[in-house]
């Protein structure tokens, strides 16, 4: 049943393939090569081996950037794994006007990070609403400079990321909750399981797969963080650039005529390896059963062989 010319499918996928090669694989290979050079704009390029990577360890900006990104990951992953699940449970019920709530909870997701970061900047600036509130309740005498302290700035950015991400991951969970039957809930309730117990023993195991997916997505997204920190610090990366994320460092290293393209590529490569870690962990965890089964099977086979051997000997 093939009434098309043999080349039709190839023509159809050609644009996609060209784009993937031109704007994903080629730049990636280029990054790998550049990471071992001292490339700068308008200058001859020469290979420098691992010099860029050696430089990384002595570069305190890189250490700060990695620290920022890792703290971001450590705080964001638990928050954005559980809070959206609770939110999804909240909007999962079929009650009147729930569609309105779902839609508005999604607004922060579709708004540009720049726009909401500017709002955040107003809220948390020295004269901003949050400080006015703190003063109103008499908690502080002098305004807290949220945006010019390294950790407070990172905290504000994390708050922004969590607030903006809630709706996105809520939708991921919603799709999963739709597939979760009510029978288990009813059976558990019959056995006298309370609401809290059912959440931990029915809902959470039921959405285990999506939960893994969400925590990996959050993990990778947190490592790629850029806009929030950039806008909140006005592009400076906080005091002394110590609140820079890795992507901010890449961007600031690679830009302009003095850009250290080779060095920026080396940082990019480190970032890439870091984003692969959570994926690898999930791969191992998901295939744990397979691995264990494989091991068990091998043990069984060996035992069987031994049995036959002893029988043959006897």
């Amino acid at each position: 049943m093939r009434r098309q010319r043999w080349y039709t499918p190839y023509l159809l996928v050609l644009p996609g393939v060209v784009w993937v090669f031109g704007f994903a694989l080629w730049p990636f290979l280029n990054t790998v090569v550049l990471a071992f050079t001292d490339a700068r704009p308008l200058r001859p390029v020469s290979f420098v081996g691992l010099a860029n990577f050696q430089k990384l360890f002595d570069d305190e900006r890189f250490v700060y950037a990695v620290t920022t990104s890792l703290v971001y990951v450590l705080v964001c992953v638990p928050l954005l794994t559980f809070l959206p699940l609770l939110l999804a449970l909240l909007v999962h019920a079929k009650i009147p006007a729930i569609g309105f709530f779902r839609t508005t909870f999604y607004f922060p997701v579709i708004a540009s990070a720049v726009v909401v970061a500017i709002v955040w900047e107003f809220l948390f600036s020295g004269s901003g609403t949050v400080n006015a509130g703190l003063k109103f309740f008499g908690l502080v005498d002098r305004p807290v400079e949220f945006l010019s302290d390294r950790w407070l700035l990172i905290g504000c950015a994390i708050g922004l990321t969590v607030w903006k991400g809630l709706g996105y991951y809520m939708v991921v969970y919603l799709a999963a909750l739709g597939n979760l039957g009510r029978e288990l809930h009813e059976a558990a309730a019959m056995d006298g399981a309370g609401r809290w117990r059912r959440f931990w023993s029915v809902t959470v195991p039921g959405v285990r797969g999506p939960m893994m997916l969400v925590s990996v997505l959050v993990c990778v997204a947190a490592m790629r963080i850029f806009t929030e920190l950039y806008v909140l610090s006005n592009g400076s990366g906080g005091p002394g650039g110590r609140a820079m994320s890795m992507v901010m460092l890449i961007q600031s290293m690679g830009k302009g005529l003095n850009g250290q393209v080779g060095y920026a590529s080396a940082i990019s490569l480190v970032l890439f390896v870091m984003t692969l870690v959570p994926l690898a962990v999930v791969g191992v965890v998901n295939n744990q059963d397979l691995i264990r089964e494989g091991a068990a099977e091998r043990r069984m086979r060996r035992a069987a062989r031994q049995v036959t051997r002893t029988e043959a000997a006897a």
Binding site: A24, P27, N30, V220, G254, S265, S268
Partner: peptide, 17 residues
């Protein structure tokens, strides 16, 4: 495989392209 590749990683060489 390209799904595993964050755009930020190729930022610098993407710009060169």
């Amino acid at each position: 495989s390209t799904l595993l590749l964050p755009g930020e990683v190729t930022l610098t060489s993407q710009y060169l392209t």
